[in-house]
Design a protein around this nucleic acid. Structure first.
Length: 261
DNA sequence: ATGGTTGTCGAACAA
């Protein structure tokens, strides 16, 4: 079962780019972030006509997540538990029925800039809620993949120019520690585990500004965390870097895992 | 040089 994540940065501007990548990469299920639309305006029929089951959790103008799947989905859950007052659409879960049932959690973690400030406080509080949800999912002992745009640069080697990120919410010690705490509860970074001693990236985001892509001034912020039972099924994982060079690209590229499931 | 780019939406805001 191939499961992918793609921060699409506006679904309606990216219908062609997403369709092309889906045809080439052939994932079984994909979580999308920053669809930037309400559910009613998601191009649902376009993707259903291509054979995808579509589940959305949208929001006007900003944020918004979705799942596309070629396999049956069960038990779809929208919103991250832990704060009834949180109205931002950043989280969606479902069970994908392949040879095995795999729970997937698609997430768009708050950016948190500028820091310090209320947006950074919201980011850290959201990460605490994510840790609580992650423990609940881990304790089901199902294979679970939590994946998406985490908006956290885990380590110095995950940025081409770490020095320019030192004041950014994505690289604050508090952000990095919060991600590390989640991982230490039993989650495996699917990209890192494939190359534990890699010295650079692989990057998943290059800013639209300043010619970041042409300079390969990237960061690794799109992650896939595997529960122990999912890690046991890991066959392969990767970053589809070449997508960033395509027509009207998102600023992020897809990441994916292949599980024996 | 206090800049640069993109999407949504239709004036700013978020990233």
């Amino acid at each position: 079962m191939k499961i992918a994540s793609f921060n699409i940065n506006g679904i309606r501007a990216r219908i062609e780019a997403l369709s092309d990548w889906l045809a080439a990469a052939q994932p079984d299920a994909v979580v999308l972030q920053e669809i930037k639309t309400v559910d009613e305006n998601f191009p649902r029929a376009h993707f259903e006509d291509l054979g995808w089951t579509v589940e959305t959790h949208g929001q006007k103008g900003f944020n918004g997540v979705a799942i596309l799947s070629k396999l049956p989905l069960e038990d779809v859950m929208r919103g991250l538990p832990g704060d009834e007052t949180d109205e931002q659409a950043r989280y969606i879960e479902a069970t994908v029925i392949g040879d095995r049932a795999v729970r997937i959690a698609g997430l768009y973690l708050p950016n948190g800039n500028p820091q310090p400030g209320p947006k950074f406080d919201y980011k850290l509080a959201w990460m605490n809620r994510l840790q609580a949800r992650a423990k609940t999912l881990r304790d089901t002992e199902m294979p679970v993949v939590m994946l998406g745009d985490f908006n956290v640069i885990p380590e110095t080697r995950d940025a081409a120019r770490p020095e320019v990120w030192v004041d950014d919410a994505l690289f604050q010690p508090e952000s990095r520690a919060a991600l590390r705490r989640i991982e230490l509860d039993g989650w495996t970074d699917a990209i890192r585990i494939r190359d534990p001693h890699g010295q650079r990236g692989p990057f998943t985001f290059w800013d639209f500004q300043g010619g970041a892509w042409s300079k390969d001034n990237g960061i690794r912020i799109d992650h896939m965390l595997l529960s122990p039972q999912a890690a046991d099924l890991l066959c392969d994982a990767g970053v589809d870097r070449e997508v960033r060079a395509g027509e009207k690209p998102s600023d992020h590229v897809p990441v994916w895992v292949d599980l024996a499931a």
